[in-house]
Simulated assay, not measured.
Amino acid sequence: MELTENNIKSLLAKLPLLKTEIQKVIVGQEHILDELLVAFFAGGHCLLEGVPGLAKTLLVKTMSQALQLSFRRIQFTPDLMPTDIIGTEILEEDHATGKRFFKFNKGPLFANIVLADEINRTPPKTQSALLEAMQEFEVTYGGQTYPLDRPFFILATQNPIEQAGTYPLPEAQLDRFLLLIRIGYPTAQEEFEVLNRTTGTRKVELNAVISAEEITQAQALVRQVSISEDLVRYVSLIIRATRPDTTDLAYVKEWVRWGAGPRAGQALILTAKACALLKGRYAVLMEDIHAMATPVLRHRVLMNFKAEAEGITADKATAELIKLVERPKGI
Rank of each mutant, 00 (worst) to 15 (best):
K99L: 11
T126C: 09
L195F: 15
K273N: 05
Y141D: 02
V60W: 09
G200L: 14
M292L: 15
P262F: 10
E92P: 00
R100M: 13
I8Q: 05
L270M: 15
L115M: 11
A42K: 12
A283E: 06
P186F: 11
I8S: 02
P160R: 15
F152Y: 05
I32R: 10
P170K: 07
A39H: 02
P262H: 12
D175C: 05
D248F: 11
T126I: 07
V51E: 06
T140G: 08
M286V: 14
T4R: 12
V235S: 01
T313E: 06
F192A: 10
T246K: 13
L221M: 06
I90K: 15
K56L: 01
I227N: 01
R233N: 12
G142L: 05
V25I: 14
Q23H: 12
L54P: 03
Q158T: 05
A156D: 04
E193V: 10
E320D: 01
A241K: 10
C46E: 09
A164V: 03
E190G: 06
L321G: 08
N207F: 11
M286R: 12
K9S: 10
R327A: 00
V25Q: 13
K14I: 00
I154H: 10
Y146M: 00
I183F: 08
L324Y: 10
L206R: 15
